[in-house]
Simulated assay, not measured.
Amino acid sequence: MEPGNQQLLSAFLGYLASERQLSVHTLANYRRDLERLDQQLQELGCPGWQTLSENNLRRAVGRLHGNGLSGRSLQRMLSAVRSFYRYLTREGVVSHNPALAIQAPKSSRRLPQTLDVDQIDALLERETEDPLQLRDLAIMELLYSSGLRVSELVSLNLVDLDFSDASLVVTGKGRKTRVLPVGRKALAALERWFKVRSGLVRPDETALFVGRRGTRLTTRAVEQRLARQGEQQGVNGRVYPHRLRHSFASHMLESSSDLRAVQELLGHADIGTTQVYTHLDFQHLMDVYERAHPRARRKKE
């Protein structure tokens, strides 16, 4: 990356960290996407962000797509470029945003993987006295009960949970907080975890969930533990935090059809992000319809 380009990118990332307060993970995504695009632009003979034209950006996107980058990845990249150029315009570095009129190639939208209610029960309805198993059960119950992101889960502190009110204060993307309900079974699992937590935690640790060393769990540790739990219980497919979040959203929509409420619970800024779950709900309705309607049942072979 050219020195001038690196300076502009570093300033932009600093702005995202300090003013937008984005997570380290999100910042890494911005950096990776913009550096990848910058490399492609330089190969096309367009070395500077300040001189980038709409036509050259379109050529770079086309080249990246031709080299196998998916439409979804290109959409994210273009979103990063738009944000970058909004910042550059605000700072007076450029006078136009070359990414505004460019659309990424369309790609089929993958439906989120979910667990059905029987799989959830197989995963969560267990008796154990092992402290780490009790912690894992509390984690899974909370992910499924309240639809948390794994980053939100690992950032939880003791003070964020209110047993008397059955509620939880969660800090999501952009440091936005929301108050979520906690279900009865999740509260019971958390109470069982609290009874053994003191035997693991360091005296000054405020995290709700800790590991063997008594310190806050990482997202990677949670992912590994959930994958292991899924294997041990024979769940079909890999169990991971976002799959429990997807299951929460899908089951809530199946029962309530209240898209706005599910949007608020998930902490989605755009309801369009939540609407992917309506496709899952429609699939569920189609299954019910084909089983129940006398003129829709499939013939037995």
Score class of each variant (00 low, 15 high):
Gly4Ile: 07
Asn5Cys: 11
Ala11Asp: 14
Phe12Asn: 01
Gly14His: 07
Leu16Thr: 08
Ala17Thr: 10
Ala17Val: 02
Leu27Thr: 06
Asn29Ala: 15
Tyr30Cys: 00
Arg31Ser: 10
Leu37Lys: 02
Leu41Val: 07
Pro47Gln: 05
Thr51Pro: 00
Glu54Ser: 13
Val61Glu: 04
Gly62Gln: 13
Arg63Met: 13
His65Leu: 00
Gly66Val: 00
Gly71Tyr: 03
Phe84Tyr: 07
Tyr85Leu: 06
Val94Lys: 04
Ser95Glu: 13
Ala99Gly: 05
Leu100Glu: 15
Ala101Tyr: 05
Ala104Glu: 07
Lys106Asp: 09
Lys106Pro: 02
Leu115Phe: 06
Leu115Lys: 02
Gln119Ile: 04
Gln119Cys: 01
Glu125Val: 14
Pro131Val: 10
Leu132Phe: 12
Leu134Gln: 15
Leu134Thr: 08
Asp136Ser: 10
Leu137Glu: 04
Ala138Trp: 01
Met140Ala: 08
Tyr144His: 12
Tyr144Gln: 12
Ser145Pro: 06
Leu148Arg: 05
Val150Ala: 11
Glu152Arg: 05
Leu156Glu: 11
Thr171Gly: 02
Gly172Cys: 04
Thr177Asp: 14
Thr177Leu: 08
Val179Trp: 10
Leu180Phe: 03
Arg184Tyr: 00
Ala188Ser: 09
Ala189Glu: 05
Glu191Gly: 06
Arg192Thr: 07
Gly199Thr: 13
Gly199Asn: 09
Val201Lys: 03
Phe209His: 12
Gly211Ser: 11
Arg213Gly: 14
Leu217Ile: 11
Arg220Ile: 02
Ala227Gly: 09
Ala227Val: 03
Gln229Phe: 04
Glu231Phe: 06
Gln232Ser: 14
Gln233Arg: 15
Gln233Thr: 13
Asn236Asp: 10
Gly237His: 13
Arg238Trp: 09
Arg238Asn: 08
Pro241Asn: 07
Leu244Ser: 09
His246Pro: 04
Ser247Tyr: 08
Glu254Gln: 14
Leu259Pro: 06
Leu259Tyr: 12
Arg260Lys: 00
Ala261Lys: 02
His268Trp: 03
Ala269Phe: 11
Asp270Pro: 08
Gly272Glu: 06
Thr273Ile: 11
Thr273Glu: 05
Thr274Asn: 04
Tyr277Phe: 13
Leu280Ser: 05
Phe282Asn: 08
Phe282Tyr: 14
Leu285Arg: 12
Val288Gln: 04
His293Thr: 11
Pro294Thr: 11
Ala296Gly: 11
Arg298Gln: 15
Lys299Gln: 15
Lys300Phe: 02
Glu301Asn: 10
Glu301Cys: 01
